[in-house]
Simulated assay, not measured.
Amino acid sequence: MIRVLIADDEAMMRAGVRAILESDSGIEVVFEAADGREAVDGVQRHRPDVALLDIRMPRLDGLSAAEAIAATVPSTRVVILTTFGEDDYVERALGGGALGFLLKAADPRELIAGVHAVAAGGAYLSPAIARRVIAPYREGDRARGAGAREALSVLTDREREVLALLGAGASNAEIGEQLHLVEGTVKGYVSAILLKLGVRNRVEAAVVAHRGGLVPS
């Protein structure tokens, strides 16, 4: 069972998100918060698997709450669920430790898929956000592509295989299944990849994988 915390300052939105999530028998909403500070406190008390945060909330905005959760309860994986998909929000969210970024206007099935992906150790971006994140590399940003390929050169062949699957959105369990590795071994490879690439999380590693051509466009 995936335990989820919802944080949004609109009660109707919280109710709608809860209804969508609990239509999936594998998801349980354990706490609702009306602001960012309450969300951080709720995560510290309930230790959910996933915290689903809006951006614009009173007392503490969702991006600051995400950073606080990542720093104090790293076992809780943060997903931003918002109306606002501006690039600076996406960059700060992912840089602050969020592993997912979803838009409220998206299909409800994306919300469920995103929660499952992040809870399983993967990352998830709404397709509209993912296209914008990856677009510069598809549009011929050769300097960044060359830099990414140089960074990838420090990886072993097996690490490149792991990173290619990670960049395609696979969880640790799915990577292990495809490469015939136990999940603990995959976690070790992922940690080594993050260290060698000098990135902070799986999303940043996935971006490098796309830049360097490990993931087909």
Rank of each mutant, 00 (worst) to 15 (best):
V4R: 04
L5W: 12
I6P: 05
I6R: 06
M13T: 13
A15Y: 11
A15S: 13
A19V: 06
S23K: 09
D24H: 09
V29T: 07
R37V: 12
A39F: 02
A39G: 05
V40A: 02
R45D: 13
L52A: 04
R56W: 14
P58E: 06
R59I: 15
D61A: 04
A66Q: 09
A68M: 14
A70P: 08
A70R: 11
V73E: 10
P74A: 08
S75G: 12
R77V: 10
V79Y: 03
F84E: 08
G85V: 02
V90P: 00
L94E: 05
L94I: 11
G95V: 05
G100M: 05
L102D: 01
A105R: 13
A106L: 07
A106D: 15
P108G: 04
L111Q: 04
I112G: 09
H116L: 14
A119T: 05
A120R: 13
Y124F: 11
R131W: 10
R132K: 14
A135R: 11
R138L: 10
E139P: 07
G140Q: 02
D141N: 12
A143R: 12
A146S: 13
A146H: 09
E150G: 12
L155S: 10
D157R: 13
D157C: 11
E159D: 02
G167Y: 01
S171K: 01
I175T: 01
G176E: 03
E177S: 15
H180K: 13
K187Q: 13
K187W: 14
K187R: 14
Y189P: 00
S191Q: 15
I193G: 00
I193A: 00
L194D: 02
K196Y: 08
L197Y: 02
G198I: 01
N201T: 05
A205C: 02
A206I: 01
V207A: 03
V208Y: 01
P216Y: 12
S217F: 15
S217Y: 15
